[in-house]
């Protein structure tokens, strides 16, 4: 079973620090990492390969450094990695991104077909989760988003069943192959990579494609030019008059909080009613 995983390199927004006074990002503090959700997507692909055989290929659009993210995927167990990197891709919103990735996937499918495309639920630099369904629409295959479990894969009948996470529950949905899944973290634990994978990754160099390597690309749909959305104004979040700071030693602070909370009796009556 040939599985393609779209992966993105993102600034580690958990680490990225924001200067509270200037509201500016301290980018230096944010190392670039493999989008955590994509790591789970690759892990899932590797798991499927173990059962059904085939090949796991990862695809990434980004700057040259993004090949580090691809190497991480090889550590997890991906067979091949492709990086599409070109100034003309830069500044893409999700529509332009899905177009570029779609074009790259098309080119890959020339040599061997794709049974399944995996994406992360979202990329933590934007949390949009729009790229996956976009790619699916362009490929003309069904998108199944927020997948927390693959129930069954039936290659005979080219079908699979998955659990899609929805508000307070999940749905069991069946789809024909090929289709595209975006995965949640619950779907698996990313295993500690075995040493042979580490060695392979350390020596691995992904294939890098520019726009010119892709077939019949409409340049107008790429990068900034191909992005309908643009950022208008930016402004710091409205500051309220600010908190009344409770001074004094811890004892005093504690007793003040306790009393100001207990004044709000309704809090407890409401609760009591349950």
């Amino acid at each position: 079973m040939n599985i393609l995983v779209c992966i993105k390199q993102v600034p580690d927004t958990k680490i990225i620090k924001v200067n509270p006074k200037t509201n500016t990002l301290d980018r230096s503090s944010a190392p670039a990492i493999l989008n955590p959700y994509d790591a789970h997507a690759v892990e899932e692909a590797v798991g499927l390969r173990a059962v059904h055989g085939g090949k796991v290929t990862v695809l990434c659009m980004g700057p040259p450094q993004a090949k580090e993210a691809i190497k991480k995927c090889v550590e997890i167990g991906a067979d091949e990695g492709f990086l599409i990197s070109d100034r003309r891709f830069a500044g893409a919103d999700t529509l332009a991104t899905s177009y570029a990735l779609y074009k790259a996937i098309q080119k890959m499918m020339v040599d061997d077909g794709v049974d399944l495309v995996l994406c992360g639920k979202h990329a933590i630099d934007g949390d949009t989760g729009q790229t996956g369904p976009g790619i699916a629409r362009r490929l003309g295959i069904p998108p199944l988003t927020n997948v927390i479990k693959i129930e069954e894969v039936d290659l005979e009948n080219q079908q699979m069943k998955v659990h899609r996470k929805i508000e307070n529950g999940y749905e069991l949905i069946q789809s024909s192959l090929p289709c595209l899944l975006t995965v949640e973290k619950e779907i698996n634990e990313v295993a500690y990579s075995p040493l042979p994978n580490m060695l392979r990754a350390a020596r691995y160099t992904p294939t890098i494609w520019t726009v010119d390597d892709l077939n019949d690309v409409d340049i107008k749909q790429l990068g900034l030019k191909g992005s309908p959305t643009i950022v208008g104004k930016m402004w710091p979040p409205a500051k309220s008059e600010g908190a009344n700071i409770i001074e004094g030693d811890v004892k005093k602070q504690v007793s003040e909080i306790v009393s100001l909370v207990l004044e709000k009796r309704e809090l407890f009556e409401v609760k009591g009613g349950e």
Binding site: L95, S98, G129, P133, K165, P228
Partner: peptide, 23 residues
């Protein structure tokens, strides 16, 4: 911005080729 709302909006944006702002 629910599971299905986001899913649909993303697909429609590509279907009719327009911009979509998330969350």
């Amino acid at each position: 911005a629910t599971s299905n709302g986001k899913d649909l909006a993303s697909a429609v944006a590509t279907e009719v080729m327009t911009g979509l702002t998330a969350d």
